[in-house]
């Protein structure tokens, strides 16, 4: 407990409310007003309603009623929902684990002084420009056991048939590769932006200190691209966690519930089954997961804030 003295000091240090509206603060507040209003109206309010809906049962065509934590209890007693959460985590770890190293490598390559490499900066961004529903269908046709080129090539090479969307492991790999393929361009771009901003002198002095390639990477490149890496990982994490369209178009959550990530489950409950209460409860869980990851990244990477 702070002492009374400390508190009164803190109080006198705090500018009074009238101070807040003093002339020099008015302009920045006015400038921020449109964004803040937009977010309050169209994001904060629905966000609050998700919590409200999650505590109610809302059958179609009937008035809704308060049910307390019933929706959550129903979900967490389900093997299926626990599987959904695990599938999401697996999906996320897979996508990040696959896309970040490739993106880093690609960023290093396209920022290198090798002639012509810069052109690929643009070309490598193509996967990001394609709509997820389209790329998902492309991937689905590529792994078709009879007509898909990837499945056929593997069959020719190994003499075995690969049923990508039937075999649980292969199905998980397929959704991960698809999502990593989509995610890596933006990560690459962000990391490359960080790489270009590293002054050459730092490398030169590192070389003078006798640092080899790995040491240069470890002590110069990596720390100086940490901010970009943070932004990239954060963005992709959120996109991956809430991804419903990509996975749904590829597997619809199958086989069984193997690839039914939380986003897909939410999509089904909200737009196919119309279980508004359950959908809202899943939404709350998804929000909690996202916040958890944000906090985690802020702690681990310590970058955050973008100061």
């Amino acid at each position: 407990m702070p002492s009374t003295l400390e508190r009164s000091i803190a109080f006198t240090r705090r500018p009074g409310w009238s101070l807040y509206l003093r002339h020099r603060y008015r302009l920045p507040y006015l400038l921020l007003l449109p964004v803040v209003l937009l977010l309050l109206l169209f994001l904060a309010w629905p966000l609050a309603s998700v919590f409200y809906f999650s505590l109610r049962r809302t059958p179609l065509g009937e008035p809704s009623q308060f049910v307390g934590l019933d929706n959550f209890a129903l979900l967490f007693r389900e093997a299926r929902f626990l599987g959904n959460i695990l599938a999401s985590l697996q999906y996320l770890v897979g996508v990040l684990g696959l896309s970040v190293p490739v993106a880093y490598l690609a960023a290093v390559l396209i920022s290198s002084k090798v002639r012509g490499a810069g052109a690929f900066r643009t070309l490598f961004l193509l996967p990001w420009i394609i709509a997820p529903v389209v790329s998902a269908i492309l991937f689905r046709t590529m792994v078709d056991p009879y007509t898909g080129p990837v499945a056929r090539a593997l069959e020719t090479l190994t003499g075995r048939k690969y049923l990508f969307l039937v075999n649980p492991q292969l199905a998980v790999i397929t959704i991960i590769v698809h999502s990593a393929w989509r995610s890596f361009p933006l990560e690459m771009l962000l990391i490359a932006a960080g790489l270009t901003s590293i002054p050459q002198e730092l490398y030169d002095s590192a070389k003078v200190d006798g640092a080899g390639g790995w040491a240069q990477f470890r002590y110069v490149t990596l720390p100086l691209t940490k901010n970009q890496l943070f932004v990239a990982v954060l963005l992709i994490t959120i996109w991956t966690l809430q991804d419903a369209e990509g996975v749904y178009s590829l597997t619809q959550g199958g086989p069984g519930y193997t690839t039914e990530v939380v986003g897909v489950r939410l999509f089904k409950e909200a737009f196919i089954y119309f279980n508004v209460g359950i959908a809202a409860a899943i939404g709350v869980v998804l929000i909690a997961l996202s916040v958890l990851f944000m906090v985690f990244y802020l702690r681990v990477l310590g970058a955050g804030e973008g100061q």
Binding site: V166, A171, T251, P255
Partner: peptide, 11 residues
């Protein structure tokens, strides 16, 4: 075929 467990009904 085992492939009947996945894909689409049309295919």
């Amino acid at each position: 075929p085992e492939s009947a467990i996945g894909g689409t009904y049309d295919d």
